[in-house]
């Protein structure tokens, strides 16, 4: 078996950062699959990469010839704000309502 890179403590930290809450069966499956995927990812380390190889963040280069001009920074009202607010799970008087936001009061 390949070495286990993501141990239970690291995994728990990731789950916290991801704002997830997992039961035991899910956690076991996900941690196992993460480690298996990392095994596949480790193949990348065998590739000789000299410093001249730049990163590619998009396959097709964005050249001025094919990039659209930036549009004006105009404020454009949406035709039906109520429709958008209507999607929110809880709304009061045009405000989206959420449970208590953890905070500390400054002295």
């Amino acid at each position: 078996m390949p070495a286990e890179t993501i141990d239970p403590a690291t995994f728990a930290h990731l789950v916290h950062l991801a704002a997830l809450e997992l039961d035991e069966a899910q956690a076991e499956y996900l941690r196992r699959e993460l480690n298996r995927q990392l095994g596949a990812i480790h193949e990348l380390e065998a590739i000789p990469l000299d410093d001249s190889v730049p990163i590619t963040s998009h396959g097709v280069p964005y050249t001025p010839e094919i990039s659209p001009p930036l549009r004006e920074d105009d404020w454009q009202p949406f035709s039906d704000a109520a429709e958008i607010l209507g999607q929110a799970p809880q709304v009061e008087e045009g405000y989206v309502v959420v449970p208590d936001i953890p905070h500390t009061t400054l002295e």
């Binding site: 997830l20 699959e33 993460l34 449970p99």
Partner: peptide, 30 residues
């Protein structure tokens, strides 16, 4: 729920299936 953070966690746990969770965790790690 007690607060917003707990709402996030419960919502995302109940709302996402295993494959989105797997991608989120891997994306955050790497």
């Amino acid at each position: 729920v007690q607060d917003l953070h707990e709402m996030y966690r419960k919502t995302r746990n109940e709302g996402f299936g295993l494959q989105p969770k797997l991608r989120i965790l891997m994306g955050m790690y790497v």
